[in-house]
Amino acid sequence: MQEIKKDYKPLIVAFCCNWCSYAGADLAGSSRLSYPAEVKIIRVPCSCRVNPTFILKAFQRGADGVIICGCHPGDCHYTSGNYFARRRMSLLFSMLDYLGIERERTRVEWVSAAEGAKFSAVMNDFAKTVTELGENKRLEDLRCKN
């Protein structure tokens, strides 16, 4: 485990589907349930819109953690989008793990529009996990030219 800088704050990108998780994030907001400012949300229509390239690009650009949030399985606004997302992300995350990248840096969570509290809890937990992991050295190393 690497040493963590004292005031280290990770950079976290959260992809949220418009219908459930983004609304859940809004609910967390209107309920004033806080989570770290390091979490930045990108709105997508559905978790199935999240292309693995977005995730890799985020890491390449310096993100320390990427989380994808969608409707609970069975509740997708588009019926089946999150089922496809679930398979894609399962395979992608497993591949990143296979390449030796810390598996805790990527996560999928199902958060409904009614789960503001869950959204906030998930983000707090994920931010904590990523903070403990420290900077994305594995990918930063790769970004360095040598």
Partner: peptide, 17 residues
């Protein structure tokens, strides 16, 4: 409205430190 380019641009803007 949610093109690959647009989302990539958002990722870029957010991750720029």
């Amino acid at each position: 409205g949610f093109t690959t380019g647009q989302i990539m641009a958002e990722v870029d803007a957010i991750c720029k430190r």
